[in-house]
């Protein structure tokens, strides 16, 4: 009995401690666990913010079945790095507030963050960011992919995106003729 009581108390204490923790644990589709700053996760991801607010965070690792460990590691890495760079982000957003363009250029660290990723990792990260409702990360990753695509030929794009050319030769020629200008070097 005593032992049981003691265990119950321990459980309670642990729960309180969990609630007070400033990190949350996320579990990838392949079962790996990652810790991320609760504040950053709630601020950067609408989905995680909803889970935290709704109490559906699992202390033993919240299941994110749609996201592989490599992508989740990058998500967590991004959140933690973002948590460390708040002052600069705030400064930048206020200084360019006159700009009505919805997209703010990636900051230096964000640029470096996506630059080191392989194509694979980048595409997985875009999907993860989309799934988690991470607007800024989606912006930065989409921006990076669009940078990669600039100046590429349709052939190269088909290769990267694994797309089959389903045009006939005649169809393609017709479209190309109209858009000849778009095929000269950027």
């Amino acid at each position: 009995m005593e032992v049981d009581k003691g265990k119950g108390e321990a459980e309670e204490t642990r729960k309180v401690a969990e609630a007070d923790r400033d990190t949350v644990t996320l579990k990838s589709s392949d079962g790996k666990l990652f810790e991320v700053s609760k504040e950053a996760a709630a601020r950067l991801s609408t989905v995680l913010a909803g889970m935290i607010a709704g109490g559906s965070i699992d202390d033993n690792g919240t299941d994110l079945k749609q996201i592989g460990s490599e992508a989740l590691e990058n998500v967590v890495d991004y959140c933690n790095k973002h948590a460390n760079s708040i002052p600069s982000a705030a400064l930048i957003s206020s200084s360019i507030s006159f700009n009505t363009a919805p997209f703010k250029e990636p900051e230096e660290w964000e640029r470096k963050f996506v630059d080191r990723l392989s194509h694979d990792a980048l595409f997985d990260l875009v999907e993860a960011a989309n799934f988690l409702g991470m607007e800024r990360l989606l912006d930065v990753t989409c921006h990076k992919i669009s940078e990669m695509m600039k100046g590429k030929s349709p052939d190269q794009i088909r290769e990267v995106f694994n797309i089959k050319n389903d045009y006939t030769k005649e169809e393609l020629e017709e479209i190309r003729q109209e858009l000849a200008w778009a095929f000269y070097d950027d």
Binding site: F103, C142, H143, S146, M149, K150, G151, K152, S153, P154, I157, R158, F161, I163, K164, N165, D166, Y167, L172, I175, R176, L179, W181, A182, F183, D186
Partner: peptide
Amino acid sequence: RLPAKSICRFKCVSW
């Protein structure tokens, strides 16, 4: 996020 010129070219990627 791409310039209009790239977009036009990518019409040729697939239907």
